[in-house]
Amino acid sequence: MKIKFIFVFVLFNFLKIRLIQLKRELISLGWWRVILICLFVILSGWFIYKEMKIFPGCYYITGFIGLITAMIHIYRKDKIFILITGAETLKIYFAEYAFFSIPVLVLMALTIHWYCLFALLCFDFVLSFINYTPQQKNRGGYTFSFIPKDNFEWISGIRKNSWFLSGLYLLALALLKYPYASLFILWIMLAIIASFYKECEPFDIINLSELPPKLFILQKLKLHFKSYFVFSIPILAGYCIFHIQTVWEALIIFVLSLINLSLFILSKYAVYEPKQDLSANNLLVTLIHLCMLVPVIGQFLFPVPLLMSIRAYRKSLHNLNLYLDAYY
């Protein structure tokens, strides 16, 4: 009885810590971003609910949620910490995944997909047994000659996502013949590139340029536009060759990509603090980027990245002033 009580206590504390972390992340984002995230969550909930009513939709949703949970489990960095606390890791993991799946589980129950509900719970249970964390020991034996040495975000990000990006890149090249397919994949790849900007570099790296904030930002944008240009040009050029009559589609995608890339960079420096992890901030801009693909809603989102970039640019200048004020 006493052991059970201790377990419930530990479990409750772990869930409490997660909720506190979530609250802190939301507070750090600011109220208007929280409203945007809430809107996305509601829209996603509505989309999931709609999809679940249709026959194969429920399977796709279950698979998607399972995949996300698996990714979180494999890459979570607190496995050793949980082990050290002496808690029963299996139960902790399962309770956490089940707890945060509640909204989806409720939707599954509402649409009377009990088998999907049980399948997801079983998957979470099995997942909790897996104690695998990928090692980085052997990664990084190759270099990326097309990335300038100053572009550490891309060097790091491409190294981290090399397999996934290579697969998508090859797929985009293979599907050049088909309308929109390669452009769609290029858009998805830009969502991965967005994750390159979730980490804040140390202060001494910012300082290396010895430039005032405005020039620092312009130089940064130039450098990253150049890298994106080199990265995307084989796909865009190939698309233009195969679809000569609709070259403008590739051009529009390229221009929109550059605007979104600016947003990723500027939103990082708008809230930059040395050594900070900006996952929540990064998630928001990635969501906006991905939602531009959603029919109907996407059209209304087209001006959003541009407006947000302008706002983030102003905030970046102000924020970087603290770190680069010596270089006016």
């Binding site: 550490f152 790091s156 980490e199 140390p202 040395p274």
Partner: peptide, 17 residues
Amino acid sequence: NYFYSNIKGKEYLDLFP
């Protein structure tokens, strides 16, 4: 000391002029 993740020692030193 904090370093950007997934960066090699040489790449880090290359950042410094």
